[in-house]
Structures are given as C-alpha cells and as structure tokens.
Nucleic acid binder design. Sequence first.
DNA 1: CCTACCGATCGGTAGG
DNA 2: CCTACCGATCGGTAGG
Lengths: 190, 190
Amino acid sequence: MKKLSRKEQIIKTAQNMFREKGYAGTSMRDLANAVGIEAASLYNHIKSKEDLLLRICLEVSQDFFDALDEIKDVEMPAEEKLTLVIEKHVTIVTQNLDGAAVFLHEWRFLQKDNFNRLKNIRKRYRAEFQKIVQAGVEEGVFKNINPKLYSLSVLSALNWIYDWYNPEGELSPTELSKQFSYILLEGLKK
Amino acid sequence: MKKLSRKEQIIKTAQNMFREKGYAGTSMRDLANAVGIEAASLYNHIKSKEDLLLRICLEVSQDFFDALDEIKDVEMPAEEKLTLVIEKHVTIVTQNLDGAAVFLHEWRFLQKDNFNRLKNIRKRYRAEFQKIVQAGVEEGVFKNINPKLYSLSVLSALNWIYDWYNPEGELSPTELSKQFSYILLEGLKK
DNA sequence: CCTACCGATCGGTAGG
DNA sequence: CCTACCGATCGGTAGG
C-alpha cells in the first residue's frame, strides 16, 4: 500500500465524497473533516473546490483516452475492436469506481469554461466509440443499426456500472466485459 | 395547454431545476425566482425542499409501476413482454424527461426514511423487470445469460435516455424503443 | 497547518 | 403571497 501525499489523500477523499453526496452536497468542511485537517488548510493543496473537481475529471478522462489511443488506429476486425474497447472501458470504471462516478456524473457542476472543456472531451470519446461501431456497419460485419443510438446506449450501460458493481462480488471485471460483449454481439434471442 | 395551479407550477419548475442544477445545487430562492414569487411563499404550497423532491420521485415512480402492473401478470411470450416493458419504459422517460431525471438521479438526496423508501421502490421495479428476463431464460426462449447483469445493463441504458434524447429530434419514442428491442434481441453481429 | 474571520447564501419561520 | 428576519453554513482569505 503506497503512502499517499496529503494532496493525493485530499483528491481521493474528494472523489469518494463527491460520488456519495454529490459535488454541491459536499462542503469543504465535510471534506477537511474526513481528511483530518481544518477546512482552511485544504487551500494549501488545492486552489478551489472547482479546481478539485476539474482535476478529478481530467485525470479520469485521461485514463479513458489513454486506453482508446492504444487501439484507435490498430487494424483489427470491428467485432474484436468493439470487444476490446468495452473491456478497457469496464476496467477503468471498475478500478476507480469513485473517480469514474465523478467524471461521469459530477462534471456538469463545473463552471462555463471548464464545463465546455469536459463536454468536448466526453463528446470526443463518444465519437471515437461510435467510429468503431460505424466501421463495423460499413464493412458489413455488423447489422445496419443506428450507430449513434447504439453507441449512446452501450456507453450508458457501461457508465452505470459503478452504480451497482461490487468489487468484492463474484463478477470480475474481465468476466463482466465478456458477458457484456457477448450479449451485445449475439443478442438475447436463442 | 392546461393551466397549471401554482403548486403544479412549482413542482414542474422544480423538476426542471433539480435536473439541470441538481437537488443540492438548486436553492429555494432560485426556484422561487423561476416561479416568480418570493422564497417564503413557496412554503404555502409545499412543506419543505425535501418534500418537493419526494413528491416528484413518488409521482414518477407511480408512472413506472402503473405501466408495469398493466402487463406484469399477462400471459405473453417472453420476447414480446420484454419488448413491451421496454416500450413503456421509454415512453415514460421521453414524455417526462425532467421528472424521470430527478427520479433516477436525485432521489439519493432524500433523507434516511424517504431514501430507503425510494431505494425499495427502485429495487422492486428492477426485480419485476428481471423476472421477465428470467422467465424467457427458463422457457428456453432467451440465451442462458445472467438475468441480473442483463437487467441492470438494459435499465441503465434506458435510464440514460433523458440525458441525450431530443424531443424535437427525428427519433420518436416508438421508433426508439423498436430499435432498442431489436438490438437487444437480435444482437449486433450479422 | 491553524485560528480567526469575511460576506454571501442557505432552508425555513413569524406575522400579517 | 410578502416583508422581515432567524441561526446555520457556505467557499474562501489573512496572517501567522
């Protein structure tokens, strides 16, 4: 277990509290209390409450893009590529449930400029995901579905995983992504 | 266009503001301002801020259960039943985007007793949905997937619709549910 | 990292 | 439905 710097400790605690009580519902005093210092002392490590939210969102979004960049331009059958991106997505979410929850649901509390910045980041990710689906449709490997609707639906399902996933449960992230891809590709009907 | 009573007007406005800015991020002064009265005057129509949230959540949950009750005990092929419950779910969400968003994402800001009450309501709905999937699996009409994981994923996708659905767009609720069911049942692979 | 404190805003009440 | 107001809490700063 790596020892966390106070700053890392603050960020980690904030991730958890923003997830549990929401950004607006978490006060800096709550946060300071959970960390074990006075509220005023937080400001030696972070600029502001919003700065804290921004850091968390950017950090997690980086994880998503790093994963995407690894496979984006690789030549691969569409089916395989979709399976892979789903697996990576699931891994990121399950390995950082708090961070993922904040990035996915609390980002909207950012102010104007940062709000738009994150909005664009999220849009770009969706677009890349959609490209993979689209490619499969165009190659004739996938059915002729609506790629946008399809992508939005799959990402929604993936993004809610943090809400019900139990890290101590029986379902490993790998098993989870496998079942997910199988269901998506093969369909429910026998 | 029916003329709304002040009370209905407050609830409708709150639905929209709770969705847009979150429950904790919406102040009673914001709300009063949007309605066009003073904050103190709100309390002639509602008991408290939380009472407002509770009303919204219960109202929407009732819509979901009414729809479910209509088909729950009807004898019907599993495939058809799943298609139908999806269609009804989509209809409710698309016809009340604000209310659905609040019920689905802001309910957790309720205090203890009400929190648990809503938690149980949501759990019951998920369980009923899962039963439909389960029945199909047991009858051998559906593949042998994990009904719980399947239900959670589908409901996640359905519950995020409010986040991207554009009522003025080309996609009608009926068309949306059709594509949804098709994708789920038939799978993506050609 | 703390004490002491700022102005602003919060949900809500009293009384009319 | 409003004016006037309550105590509590908010994010954040000054100064050490």
